[in-house]
């Protein structure tokens, strides 16, 4: 038996919004410690990893590990039926072929229950090694979203170069070129830790997709190391995260 209750549907809506542009379907792995999800996009260029620890939930019960294969489009349709301030309870019996979502209005005067058919998804699991990133940058999530949007105007490829002087985003195409550089700020909005400078090229389309997670967090963490995927991490309060990994482009 699995049961998890969140005080607000809004955060669940935001989490699904952050996933559904990259993934059509995904499997939530529920255990007594919380919910994990990991999946590559269809083109196998990026990987998204979601972690929600049980402390994130108002109520959490999971007697036995259970995998819930969900169609994210269908889940979005169900979530549209709920108000952001409704409480939501997700329930599934052991070996169930459906999941139940119950919404309760803030004043408790309205309840609505929906059933969603579960999918049997073959999912590859990849072991994500602990990586020591040579450059770790924290910046406002809205700033990162703005940079990704502005870069996309110029080119499909974005070069991210990080050194002690700052983090620089560059794109150049037929129209011209764009360079945006952020330095560390004394107020701490932007922090930049650099062991070794790194410069890597990435597909801007994916970076823009990651910024769908912007409403979830004030700050985004970016991790860069030579010849490994870029890390873009959005914390979910103090109880979890969405991490996006993006494979770099390399010179042919």
């Amino acid at each position: 038996m699995f049961e998890a209750r969140l005080a607000s549907t809004l955060t669940l809506k935001r989490i699904v919004d952050a996933l559904r542009e990259i993934l059509n379907q995904s499997t939530l792995d529920c255990s007594d410690t919380g919910i994990q999800m990991q999946a590559m996009d269809n083109s196998h260029v990026s990987l998204v990893s979601l972690c929600l620890r049980k402390e994130y939930f108002e109520k959490y019960k999971c007697n036995r590990n259970i995998s819930l294969g969900l169609d994210l489009k269908s889940l979005t349709k169900v979530l549209k039926c709920a108000n952001g301030d409704d409480a939501v309870t997700i329930k599934a019996a052991d070996k169930a072929d459906k999941v139940e979502l119950s919404f309760e209005s803030a004043g408790k005067e309205r309840t609505a229950d929906y059933e969603l058919r579960l999918l049997n998804l073959d999912q590859e699991h990849l072991a994500i090694p602990e990586t020591e990133y040579n450059c770790v940058v924290h910046m406002p999530a809205t700033e990162f979203a703005r940079i990704c949007r502005d870069m996309a105007t110029f080119s499909e490829s974005v070069v991210i170069a990080c050194s002690k002087e700052g983090i620089k985003f560059s794109a150049s195409g037929e129209m011209g070129a764009a360079n945006i550089k952020l330095s560390e700020t004394t107020k701490g909005e932007v922090s930049i830790q650099v062991d070794e400078p790194v410069a890597l090229s990435f597909a801007g389309r994916y970076l823009s997709t990651f910024t769908r997670a912007t409403p979830l967090a004030e700050k985004v963490k970016i991790g860069l190391a030579p010849d490994v995927p870029l890390l873009v991490e959005y914390p979910i309060e103090d109880y979890g995260y969405i991490r996006y990994y993006l494979a770099p482009k390399v010179d042919d």
């Binding site: 196998h44 994500i128 770099p248 482009k249 010179d251 042919d252």
Partner: peptide
């Protein structure tokens, strides 16, 4: 011309 690598090549299957 930069070539896109696959994410799967960086992580091992479990």
């Amino acid at each position: 011309q930069a070539k896109q690598t696959s994410i799967a090549s960086f992580f091992t299957k479990v």
